[in-house]
Design a protein around this nucleic acid. Structure first.
Lengths: 243, 243
DNA sequence: ACGCTATTTTTGTCGTACTAAACTGAGTGA
DNA sequence: TCACTCAGTTTAGTACGACAAAAATAGCGT
């Protein structure tokens, strides 16, 4: 069995072109945000037919390395960790068709944030804490406006993802947010629930302030468990534990 | 701004076909491991040219929803969490061109396993512990055979990923393993290092046995930090902190 | 120098054709 | 009867040409 991300020994002509272009993007020959050469140029350059060139382009597009607007030139996009989320998007959407997929993903989120708040409690800098405080204040200020509260809620959690200096985390936050959003949009939002969530955030914040990772983790678990109860009702899962 | 995993209002004909086929796979009309209809059939069915059909097929292939061997019929593959890793593979490879990418990913692994060992210490069942014990024994038995040790080492960590009942974790383990493997292959392996790693595994195991999450986490951190020191040397990073 | 229009590219899609490989079934031999 | 071989058929991979529509560009007029 091969590795997961492998390429079989190139049998398709397009794969070779894909590899070449990938390399050029990595090497910086093709600069970020600049358009790809036209298909004809690529044909000449690689000595392939337009069919193959176009196939390569779609492949690169699906991999998230270039951005293809319908009738425009493809644009090179230097890969960042957001690109990961683009590539995973379609698959995730498939997985979320099954409510269990939503649960699994949500559990992943809980797992991640548990680790994050622990780390925050242990290693948050002054500036981190200031950011958290600001996010919390914004959160409190918007309790009565459910839409705005949703945004500041997300932002508060996002701040947690930024405390770690690992650039992967903000991308993951973006991913969780956009994947789970459709399900959260269906949840009814009420000021009293907002209040409850705000208080949970506050508890987490204070635990971080007191450098108490266990308390922070417990508060987060309780917070997200409560939130899950709100969301689970929006599913029309027919409780088919069989399938 | 759109969601991350969205599809723009279909302007490309292929996208419509992709969506249709995606839906059929999700609905179970196209069964797992069964071949896709031939391109001609799809042409007739969707009233599109072969070009478009083929484009849709490559897209599905890149998304990991079907498996395309060079001259064979594409095979439907019901998406699981491994599919995620397939989709992310190419992007990850790009990110790993930069040593900082390797570091970020490795840190993600450390972060993940820290949470996993904590959970294991708190919630591992008898059967989990038995699995860990077996993995540890296999690990010990292969200290002198570096190749075999590498396998059992990976398996030991993999056991940690399986303790959580979340199916995402085993997939993540597969991902970490295959992405980081190329770098680890370059690391020289010596029996004494194997011994050292085995002892670290044993410490982790014992901490889990004693239901001590902090000790387990600390042992894991130390273990992976030491392993990182071994790997970092294999990079030819010119210490360009500028870029 | 600026805005509008006409011309040229370029992309998206279609059709056809040809090659080589995989699939199918009939026929042959043990 | 079964397995095996070999031709014929189907299909994927690739190439070439064509055309409409949209974008990019050049040219024109003011």
């Amino acid at each position: 069995m091969n590795y997961i991300g492998e390429a079989a020994p190139d049998c398709r002509a397009a794969d070779a072109i894909v590899a070449q272009i990938e390399q050029r993007i990595a090497a910086g020959v093709l600069v970020d945000a600049s358009p790809l050469p036209s298909e004809r140029e690529l044909m000449l350059e690689f000595g392939a037919s337009r069919t193959v060139v176009r196939e390569a382009i779609t492949a690169l597009s699906n991999r998230g390395l270039i951005e293809c607007k319908p009738r425009f030139r493809p644009v090179v996009r230097r890969v960042g960790y957001e690109t990961l989320m683009i590539a995973t998007g379609p698959v995730i959407r498939q997985l979320l068709n099954d409510p269990r997929g939503v649960k699994s993903l949500y559990d992943m989120r809980v797992f991640t944030e548990r680790g994050l708040v622990r780390d925050a409690a242990l290693r948050a800098t002054k500036s981190d804490i200031q950011n958290l405080k600001a996010a919390l204040a914004a959160n409190q200020a918007s309790i009565s406006d459910s839409d705005e509260f949703y945004r500041t809620d997300t932002a508060f959690h996002g701040t947690l993802y930024q405390i770690s200096d690992n650039p992967v985390f903000p991308a993951i936050h973006q991913g969780f947010f956009s994947w789970l959003a459709p399900h959260w949009d269906r949840m009814q939002r009420l000021p009293e629930r907002n209040e409850q969530n705000y208080l949970a955030h506050k508890t987490i914040y204070e635990a971080i302030l007191e450098r108490d990772p266990d308390a922070a983790e417990d508060a987060l678990i309780e917070h997200l468990a409560a939130a899950w109860e709100f969301v689970r009702d929006t599913f029309d899962w027919e409780d088919d534990a069989t399938r």
